[in-house]
Design a binder for these strands. Structure first.
Length: 439
RNA sequence: CGGAGCGUAGCGCAGCCCGGUAGCGCAUCAGUCUGGGGGACUGGGGGUCGCGGGUUCAAAUCCCGCCGCUCCGACCA
């Protein structure tokens, strides 16, 4: 993509409404624009990141055996009356009336809808277990949206729902998601710590939140220092091996870690100076809640002996749009964003320091074509801006690699490449630079 | 939902107290010079001062109402 043609409205100054770093940088880097409180448009650069994050989530869900579907954003109030949550949910739920005066709502979550789908179509114990997910926009009418995309009212969320015959099967479904979550966050360069969590209005008796430690986190968290050394980034296991899966989960929960609501002061005190108090950004939440929805909604199947079995359910959420902000909170410096390779909107930023100069244009154009041919996503800054402006833009938008072509380098047959994360710069002969970047 | 603050050009702000018909920096457009970390100069364009009402000869400025946004707290992926 040529930057001269790309829609990338960067801002030199900080918009006054943005208080935290990820919000400021997303606005400045031209990733999002606010439409109204807590509701954002995703501009091309932000949209690319959102899609990358979404795709990683999708791949790890698929790997763990979940199946993707897509449910609507608008749901009938009727269903929510069946589960009893229509009144429980309160003002956070956006209620809508259609032209026929039917009561509808913009879904804040999908337990009712998925349960209806399953109860209508799954009738036999032989059809279980099932784990179904979708990645869809949700709306929760927060009293006080803030922190940009991290606490919006409209947000993109992956949510899935497991259906099992018994508690043992449900536990395994839960454990698989636990591991899928660790893998998902690790692929985004994030260390998300699983913590025993409050189950909230969704209910249930087994729940973990996945928290990224960051100063701007919304809630206080308490962690055993030893936990910070546990390798959560290289989890790999055969999902069908129930015992092995359980061992991994046990291993990753062996140290104390709790959110504010679940924190046990006495247990924390026992840790002494091993207790770390920090703040966390919640990027995922998993629940096992048994028959909380399947019972009132009558989601049952026939068992082997013709008996009626009420389904055991769990639900699992990942805040996809929130993750984009969370990644920035975890990875930035004074000059801008530092994207982990896996979610970067482009792999390489190619800077032509002297657009309009025949030799520079030719060298940059050639490198641009070759990198693209090698399968790399390249943002080519071919604008007539000054060198400083181009460097500042590249640092701001945080592409993992920068390749710089200028008259000095062209004369010597060299290209300078810079790693955004470390600032390390290397001046290499053109073909070596190409090999390095294309590798 | 309680408390506070702010709405003036795309962004950041001044002007408001003490009424006289709008200004600065950045961005933007044209041109010239520049050219390895948001460069310089010259000349342009862009604002029903959030909306509605009131006071006044005259309102960005004073008064009333509304709307929006932000911050602190209680609540949430």
């Amino acid at each position: 993509m040529r930057l001269s043609q790309y829609f990338l409205p960067t801002l030199r100054e900080n918009p006054s409404e943005a208080q935290i770093v990820s919000h400021r940088l997303m606005l400045r880097a031209g990733m999002v624009r606010q439409s109204s409180a807590g509701i954002y448009s995703w501009l091309p650069l932000g949209h690319r990141v959102l899609k990358k994050v979404e795709q990683i989530v999708r791949e790890e869900q698929d790997r763990a055996g979940a199946q993707e579907l897509l449910m609507p954003t608008i749901q009938p109030a009727e269903l929510w009356r069946e589960s009893g949550r229509y009144d429980d949910y309160g003002k956070e739920m956006l209620r809508i009336t259609d032209r026929h005066e039917r009561e509808m709502l913009y879904g804040p979550t999908n337990e009712e809808l998925i349960t209806e789908i399953v109860r209508a179509s799954i009738k036999s114990y032989r059809d279980l277990p099932k784990n179904l997910y979708h990645i869809q926009w949700k709306f929760r009418d927060e009293v006080r949206p803030r922190f940009g995309v991290m606490r919006g009212r409209e947000f993109l969320m992956k949510d899935n729902y497991s259906f099992d015959l018994d508690a043992k099967g449900a536990r395994h479904s839960y454990n698989k998601m636990f591991i899928a979550y660790l893998r998902t966050f690790a692929r985004m360069g994030l260390k998300a710590i699983p913590m025993r969590a409050d189950t909230g209005p969704i209910g249930g008796d087994l729940s973990h939140e996945f928290q990224i430690l960051a100063e701007t986190g919304e809630s206080a968290v308490f962690v055993d220092k030893a936990f910070l050394d546990v390798d959560l980034l290289n989890v790999n296991v055969d999902y069908d091996d129930q015992a092995a899966v359980q061992r991994v989960v046990d291993d990753c929960t062996r140290f104390y870690a709790a959110t504010d609501e679940k924190h046990d002061a006495a247990q924390g005190a026992k840790l002494g100076d091993r207790l770390v108090t920090a703040r966390g950004i919640e990027v995922g939440h998993i629940f096992y809640f048994g028959t909380k929805y399947s019972a009132p909604l009558k989601a049952t199947v026939a068992g082997a002996n013709g008996e009626t079995i009420t389904l055991e359910m769990g639900s699992y959420g990942i805040g996809v749009s929130r993750l984009v902000g969370a990644i920035i909170e975890a990875s930035h410096d004074a000059n801008g964003i530092i994207w982990p390779d896996s979610v970067a909107p482009f792999d390489i930023g190619l800077v032509n320091l002297r657009s309009g100069d025949a030799e520079c244009d030719a060298a940059a154009g050639e490198l641009y074509a070759k990198l693209q041919k090698a399968g790399k996503a390249v943002l080519y800054d071919d604008r007539g801006e000054s060198a400083g402006a181009k460097f500042a833009t590249m640092d701001l938008i945080g592409l993992p690699w920068q390749a710089v072509i200028g008259p000095r380098g062209v004369a010597a047959g060299k290209v300078e490449i810079k790693r955004r994360a470390t600032g390390e710069k290397l001046e290499l002969p053109t073909d070596e630079a190409l090999a390095r970047l294309a590798g």
